[in-house]
Amino acid sequence: MARINKEKKEDIYLDEAFFLTRSTQFLQEEDKSVSETKAELKTLVTNYAELLDQVKLITRISDRLQRKLDQTNDELNNMNQQIQEKNIQLEKTINDLTEAKIGRRATTFVFVFALALFLISEALIEPWIERFYNNFLISLSIKGLIALSIKPVESLVERSLLKKERARTLKTSEIRA
């Protein structure tokens, strides 16, 4: 019962429903005069015309609102796509910048490493070779090996720093989320 009342209360076509019920009841009644029938028909036609006007108006408005919503939806989708594209670009730029920063750091590290190797080579290895082998070719080969080890060390350092930086970024974004 409460549900029926609620439905009735929320029915936006209460007046129209009232006139329909009235006309239905009129149809069920017998012995109605021509003038009474005409009067009832007149009321029904007036209400029908009014309802038709309303239906036309509401349909036009609804279609227009639907179109407006569709346009807004399209605009939102476009904006979303643009944001995604910008996000990818931004991510790429950040990655490039991080790699450049890490590359510089790795180069500095390798420079210090090479300097240390040079000093070790001159101070310890060179005298040791001269003492035990005294051979120019062996000395050149060992120095060549040391020089060749610099590039792999640089790559190793760069990879390790990048890994650390990515882990740090991930942790920061997890904390923010």
């Binding site: 936006i12 076509y13 309303q54 108006l57 509401i58 408005i61 609804s62 609102l65 407006k68």
Partner: peptide, 12 residues
Amino acid sequence: EYFNTSSSKYIL
């Protein structure tokens, strides 16, 4: 700014 269908009936 915006109204739904049932509102359009009541505005009328």
